[in-house]
Design a protein around this nucleic acid. Structure first.
Lengths: 339, 339
DNA sequence: CCATCGAATGTTTACGTAAACATAACAGCA
DNA sequence: TGCTGTTATGTTTACGTAAACATTCGATGG
């Protein structure tokens, strides 16, 4: 900076003013400084800036895994939004989802150059950890129900599940089975709760709950059991991957989709439209989730946002070929041959 | 730091020594300092450290999109490896893959606090851009053939393609069709080149090349045309998503997989084993790619690595149900009914 | 018993920037 | 003409750390 100042014949402070776009610099002077900067290839030193300003213009993102579509898409949206606001994004992978590991990530974070943190994980792993965060680092949480304690941005899980179940009931199914996610996932829990509540609200029986671990393989295993139940004509899977495994299990057991069994997923991953058959599913707007996370975290840093509470991003049901009315059976209704 | 020093009754320099684990501090003194740090909740200021040390302990990763499995898995492995080495990872999304955008990303990078950059993209977009990089920032490139100009880490695309094509030929197919990736992708180009070379090396005819854009939807469109060709009994798709679309097209056109047509993919995404039928594919070790990237970039920073050249990560053929011998036809072979 | 040496610790300084304050130059007005 | 206010620019200082150098003190050896 001193070199630039010397070459331009001004003080280093004037260089700083030009560099930061402050007013009060003659157009003439500005031009000279800019020319000098260019000639010397001057780049402001971000460490010195951060030291002086007391902020890093960086947002940290903590997440367990990038193997779920949702996390990845959210992260991508966060990175894009943050870049648009002049913020960088630093990634903090947590190898194993245990409280110890999370605590470790947060303590690494303490030494890290971030002004705020966005956490993409379940709160119950988070609880014991956050205490140690530096005082001025703001937190926003995704994928959890911690609205009372943190600022939370999430997809409207309940609304999506409700739409999925209603769609199947509207098609004429007596009830809807659910292939849920792992027990310790709040997203899974909320999807299951909404499924149960919607059935109960419609006065329908609530079939036993199957569980997978989000993977297609687990959906396949659970699907083999569901396929054996003759009375199962409609399944709502808690994500598209498990729905994929379910489709394979049904196919192997000779149950046609959607003629014999309707299947509906959750997420609307890019491949969902290419499944056999193309999957009806609940579309999540991850881009919006990411955008809102950055919004929220920046507003908190400027201290003009709500401290706590949950922002829900609406979902949209995407109807494809995997859902249809139930097969005509021994019910009281009239039997019609398939068109 | 001064507060800690005061509380511990030592100088700030001694605090610094403890903080950085230098020798030459009495065990007694160290304990006092550590106690003081804990009591005051002291955390070293990374901006000041970076300013003083002249390095940020941060690696920047530039990529276009996180919507391809490969990029995501590579990124995840990079983040994990980097964390293990005490480095943070900063994400630099590039919205549109144009040279202008890339140049923009690199110029943002210049002001960014990174010591090195890993670029996950095609070189031809990179060429005009890198010139402006700060002098001491090292670069490692993934997914490209720029070994002459940069340090490159990549999957052994050619080896994987060769294995895929040979597998199909060994099963008895006369030749293998290829559903390639977009024209401007080097990965796609190398997979197609190896496919062509392997066929030529075996003295087989080289069918016309179909192209997609990596998406399942594009695989479906290309698949509809391939399905119409009676003489097409084996297809090597350049990635699993396109293979998925291809499977759907074949199914819709009444061509059974693998009885009528064998299909093989590339990547081995987690869902590949749950396709209908489960997909034979070329497994890529993205974790290893990411690890090697970090290795290479750190070695370059320590100036004891090779400046240029390509490191190839081997692939592995995963055989599942989507490949089988060709249907018995008007060839000289004996006709057998399906078991 | 004193010079010498090494280990432990303290003091000074600089990293590059930008806020705060200081100064200079000039216009407007009585 | 001299005073005031405004604008452009210069000077000083501090951000938190760690390298370089300085000092202290006890131990060792002649």
């Amino acid at each position: 900076m001193a070199d630039v100042a010397r070459l331009a014949g001004v003080s280093s402070q004037t260089v700083s003013r030009v560099s930061n776009g402050y007013a009060g610099v003659t157009e003439e002077t500005r031009r000279q400084v800019l020319a000098a900067m260019k000639e010397l290839g001057y780049r402001p030193n971000s460490a010195a800036r951060a030291l002086k300003r007391g902020e890093f213009r960086t947002i940290g993102v903590i997440t367990f895994t990038l193997s779920t579509t949702g996390n990845v898409r959210t992260l991508e949206a966060i990175a894009t939004s943050a870049a648009g606001e002049g913020y960088a994004v630093t990634l903090l992978p947590v190898a194993v989802p245990t409280q110890d590991e999370v605590r470790g990530a947060f303590s690494r974070l303490e030494e890290l150059a971030v002004d705020a943190v966005i956490v993409i994980m379940e709160v119950h792993l988070l609880d014991a950890a956050t205490i140690k965060l530096p005082p001025h680092v703001q937190v926003v949480v995704v994928d959890s129900d911690a609205g009372d304690h943190y600022t939370v941005v999430d997809t409207d899980q309940a609304g999506g599940s409700r739409a999925a179940v209603r769609h199947l009931l509207d098609l004429g199914h007596e009830t809807v089975w659910h292939l849920g996610g792992p027990e310790d996932s709040f997203a899974a829990q909320r999807r299951a709760d909404a499924w149960r509540a919607t059935l109960a609200g419609a006065g329908r029986p609530v079939p036993p709950l199957s569980r997978g671990d989000w993977s297609a393989e687990s959906g396949y295993r659970a699907g083999l059991e569901l396929a054996a139940r003759e009375d199962c004509t409609a399944v709502f899977a808690a994500n598209d991957q498990m729905a994929l495994g379910l489709l394979r299990a049904l196919h192997e057991r000779g149950r046609r989709v959607p003629e014999d069994v309707s299947v509906i997923g959750f997420d609307d991953i890019p491949e969902a439209g290419s499944f056999l058959p193309p999957l009806t599913t609940v579309h999540q707007d991850f881009a919006e989730v990411g955008r809102l996370c950055v919004d929220a975290v920046l507003r908190k840093m400027r201290q003009d946002g709500p401290e706590r509470g949950t922002t829900l991003v609406p979902t949209r049901l995407v109807t494809r070929a995997s859902t249809a009315p139930p097969p005509a059976r021994s019910t009281a209704g009239p039997e019609e041959p398939a068109g």
